[in-house]
């Protein structure tokens, strides 16, 4: 086992990285755009930063009708792989609208999928909210105009543009840790937090994403989103739709604290909204209608 001497390590083999990550307080870092912000605002304890950049976990490769995207592939890398990813329209559209070029040049696919919520109560130093280990979801008693539509202990809104696009395209993720690997549906990476597990991502301690795999592409797909200005904002509501034959998969963000797979029969089911966030129902309904029209044969 490695002995941690420094707060920053850059392992060169996956095995070494997973051993390092198995230790308490170790945090994986892809590009660090989310982590650096969290460190700056003092969110979470970071004893050791395990920088994954030297592991050759990046890159996009096609194999047997599938596409495998390495965890540390940057968002810009995705946009540079237009040819290979062209059949996954929603993913390219989502990536192009995510963040800014400056952030996409550094931010990784795994980091984007695991980023912390932008809830202002979670990130603001003036509050310790329920998700952050406190007693109260301040959004529910406070200002939740940008928050989710579900009931629950935490009404934050999931911020990733990539997650709904990948989920609609039926992506799986390959996870690795010192104790072994596993392969799950991306949708199952997310979970509703509980009183004892105040996390929105279902990763074991020390476990990281190794890659994301896209199965055979949908017949058509689209990503639509409503942001706070024309460019460079997190999605207030984002919706990906992908049609596989007759069946359309839809996944939304900005409406729940995890990416939310919509019921095709009743897309707004379970999304009743809170007084200040109910307006998002109108937006979501519009995006559903428009995306269905776009992916229709």
């Amino acid at each position: 086992m490695s002995v941690l001497r420094s707060g920053y390590v850059r392992p060169t083999s996956l095995g070494e990285a997973l051993q390092l990550l198995a230790q308490p307080g170790a945090r994986p870092m892809g590009g660090g755009t989310d982590l650096a912000g969290l460190i700056d605002r003092g969110i979470g304890q970071v004893a050791t930063i395990v920088d994954l950049q030297a592991l050759a976990l990046g890159g996009i490769r096609g194999e047997e009708g599938r596409v495998v995207i390495g965890a540390t592939t940057t968002l810009s890398d995705l946009l540079d792989a237009q040819d290979m990813l062209a059949p996954y329209t929603a993913l390219l559209e989502a990536t192009a609208q995510a963040a800014s070029p400056l952030l996409r040049n550094v931010g990784t696919v795994a980091g984007n999928l695991c980023q912390h919520t932008r809830c202002w109560y979670y990130r603001g130093p003036e509050w310790t909210c329920w998700l952050g280990g406190g007693d109260t979801c301040y959004a529910q008693v406070g200002d939740h105009r940008k928050h989710g539509l579900q009931a629950g202990d935490c009404i934050s809104a999931h911020p990733s543009d990539l997650a709904p696009a990948l989920i609609a395209c039926a992506a799986t993720v390959q996870l690795g840790s010192a104790w072994g690997d596993r392969d799950i549906d991306l949708a199952d990476l997310y979970r509703r937090p509980t009183a004892t597990e105040r996390s929105l991502v279902d990763l074991e301690p020390g476990e990281i994403i190794l890659s994301v795999t896209l199965p055979a592409p949908p017949d058509s797909s689209v990503y639509l989103r409503a942001g706070e200005r024309q460019g460079f904002s997190f999605p207030l509501v984002g919706l990906a739709a992908a049609r596989h034959g007759e069946r359309v998969s839809m996944c939304a963000v900005g409406v729940a604290n995890t990416p939310h797979v919509l019921d095709p029969v009743d897309p707004l089911a379970g999304l009743d909204g809170h007084p200040q966030s109910a307006w998002k129902r109108t937006v979501l309904a519009t995006l559903v209608e428009r995306s269905l029209a776009t992916v229709a044969p």
Partner: peptide
């Protein structure tokens, strides 16, 4: 945007 329970601006950053 002001948090009604504490009177603290919630979006006193450039991202929000």
């Amino acid at each position: 945007a002001f948090d009604p329970t504490t009177g603290v601006p919630t979006n006193a950053w450039l991202d929000d």
